[in-house]
């Protein structure tokens, strides 16, 4: 698989403070790549370097096979966390201006704008000033401005913050659609459920260092604890518990079930799953058996607190 963006040993310092300590990343082409990390981890610093807003002190960035250069500006669509538009400027003029700054010709920009305005059914807003629009309406304009120039790489910093649920969903669908058409997306967020839902790759930056990177399933595999949630209907609770604790680490758990069963969380360690299953089936009726997959949230918290 091709790599759209390669970050190689990037270092960024502000005075004595190190914002990025030799960070390397590989963003595969066509992926939705979740860039995670607590506040102040260095995500925004990295994103600003990729957008050529600031320069790295060391290391290099390869975008689309080339060393990062000013021509790449038109290939990237960037929606920063701190975002806004000119309040007293007309919506149409504003979009045209920002598109032209990205290197589009006026004709192209007009054509694309027409497409997006029709898609979001906002053609009547063209001559309105931004301050006449509601916040939700302005957010749509903001999104259009970000994707107007058909970027190959879309960088979204907390894309859903400030969006109401309706707009957030609309934007999410648009992001997924753009991704299907081949746009690679870097996604920086704290909302773990949207990472879980949308991302196929993740990287975790903490205290200026990259701690984790990889395909979402691979990372989860890496963080699997071989723990299973089981449900079993048995008369012999004590016998079962005795047998289980001999071999495995057992704890209480809870999950939804229609049966009046014993709900346990069992960590099997090096044993095979069948070892657990046989102990369970010898002592009663197995009603539930599932591996406990670590959520991105678990991984995040575990990594950051370690």
């Amino acid at each position: 698989m091709n790599t759209i963006l390669e970050v190689k040993n990037v270092v960024k310092q502000y005075g004595d403070y190190t914002a990025l300590n030799s960070v390397s990343l590989n963003v595969p082409e066509g992926s939705i790549y979740g860039l995670l990390g607590p506040n102040g981890a260095g995500k925004t610093s990295l994103i600003r370097i990729i957008n050529q807003i600031t320069l790295p002190d060391a290391g290099e960035i390869i975008l689309n096979g080339e060393k990062l250069n000013p021509n790449h500006i038109s290939m990237i669509g960037y929606m920063p966390e701190e975002r806004g538009l000119y309040k007293s400027m007309k919506v149409g003029e504003q979009c045209l201006y920002l598109a032209q700054l990205k290197g589009m010709s006026k004709q192209d920009a007009k054509k694309q704008l027409k497409f997006w305005f029709e898609k979001f059914e906002i053609q009547t807003w063209w001559d309105k000033k931004l301050q006449e629009l509601s916040k939700g309406m302005a957010q749509k304009v903001q999104f259009i401005v970000t994707v107007l120039h058909n970027p190959k790489l879309l960088i979204l910093d907390e894309p859903f913050s400030g969006f109401d649920p309706v707009n957030a969903n609309l934007i999410k669908d648009e992001i997924i659609e753009l991704n299907k058409k081949g746009t690679s997306i870097i996604f920086s967020t704290h909302r773990m459920e949207s990472v879980e839902e949308m991302c196929d790759y993740i990287a975790l930056i903490h205290k200026s260092n990259k701690l984790i990177e990889g395909k979402l399933e691979d990372v989860k595999r890496q963080f699997r604890t071989n723990t299973f949630q089981v449900g079993v209907m048995t008369q012999n609770v004590e016998g079962l518990m005795y047998q289980l604790t001999q071999k495995f680490t057992v704890g209480q758990t809870d999950f939804k079930s229609l049966n009046d069963d014993l709900k346990l969380e069992v960590q099997i360690g090096n044993h095979a799953t069948n070892d657990l299953l046989s102990v369970l089936s010898q002592n009663g009726q197995v009603t539930h058996f599932a591996e406990k997959i670590p959520s991105v949230n678990d991984i995040f918290i575990q990594t950051v607190t370690d």
Partner: peptide
């Protein structure tokens, strides 16, 4: 200051040099 308070500044300087 207007561009700063409007928070459009980062969008603009991702397209042009400060």
């Amino acid at each position: 200051i207007e561009e700063k308070t409007n928070r459009i500044i980062e969008i603009v300087i991702s397209s042009v040099k400060p």
